[in-house]
């Protein structure tokens, strides 16, 4: 298997005469935590939708987990994990029902589902909550469960779209420890966030402005490049020059 899990070249998406994503190119390697940053309206969501097989690129090429974003979008959907703050678990289903639902969607067999659900619940110390309705779980638990479920089919790469919005500082850190652990185990993490301190946790960070990737490097080298104290400063320097809003 190749070490490159996501590879895009000149990937572009136009809506009419508006170029939402303008020839972006980058590679993401196995086990990397890749931070995908940009101001509102910079084109992050559109780019992410193309990478998840939900939107067809206007031009350019790319592969995700070995599958072509132009011709194999169904394969991509099966081989990636996805989690966001807005869409995670079904509140009126139990923990177990949520696991079974998502495992089914990801195409796991009954035996596999049972096996991995048990392993997952053990690992999270959740076994006693198997039949608890998700709505009655504390937010921090929901988040962990949601991340665990998004990786239940052992995807090579998991996309996290603002996974920690509105979460308290303790839970936010517990969540990042899960991300670290998963990356340490070889899962590639592609994450967007509005918290600039979280950008510092990433192996590499890309910053989109006006549909283009304007900066891409490790947080340390980006700070050096922009003579900035923090990623917040790097981000502001770049985003301030943005020509377009949302």
């Amino acid at each position: 298997m190749s070490d490159v899990v996501i590879s895009v070249r000149d990937l572009t998406k136009r809506f009419g005469d508006f170029t939402a994503v303008d020839r972006i190119s980058f590679d993401v390697h196995r086990g990397e935590i890749f931070g995908f940053l940009g101001a509102n309206g910079a084109g992050k969501t559109t780019a992410m939708r193309m990478l998840c097989g939900l939107s067809y690129p206007t031009s350019g090429s790319g592969t995700v987990a070995g599958y072509d974003v132009r011709t194999e979008s169904e394969q991509i959907k099966r081989h990636i994990g996805y989690m966001s703050q807005r869409f995670s678990l079904y509140n009126d289903l139990t923990v177990w029902e949520n696991i079974r639902l998502f495992a089914g969607i990801y195409g796991l067999s009954k035996t596999q589902t049972e096996e991995r659900a048990t392993e997952l619940l053990d690992r999270l110390n959740f076994s006693s909550e198997r039949n608890t309705l998700v709505c009655s779980l504390p937010l921090g638990w929901k988040q962990k469960l949601s991340f665990a479920i998004s990786t239940i089919h052992r995807p090579e790469v998991v996309f996290l779209d603002e996974p920690t919005g509105g979460v308290d500082p303790v839970t936010r850190r517990q969540f990042w420890e899960m991300i670290y652990e998963a990356a340490d185990g070889g899962t590639t993490i592609f994450v967007t966030t509005h918290y600039m301190d979280e950008a510092e946790y990433c192996s590499r960070v890309s910053i989109m402005v006006d549909g283009e990737v304007r900066a891409l490097d490790t947080p340390a080298r980006l700070k050096q490049q922009f003579a900035a104290e923090s990623m917040d400063e790097v981000f502001r320097t770049l985003a301030r020059g943005a020509q377009r809003g949302e």
């Binding site: 940009g38 101001a39 509102n40 603002e162 919005g165 509105g166 509005h194 600039m196 917040d232 981000f235 502001r236 985003a239 301030r240 943005a242």
Partner: peptide, 10 residues
């Protein structure tokens, strides 16, 4: 400022 980028928040 929830969900708003760092520049607009400022």
């Amino acid at each position: 400022t929830t969900g708003v980028d760092a520049v607009s928040r400022n």
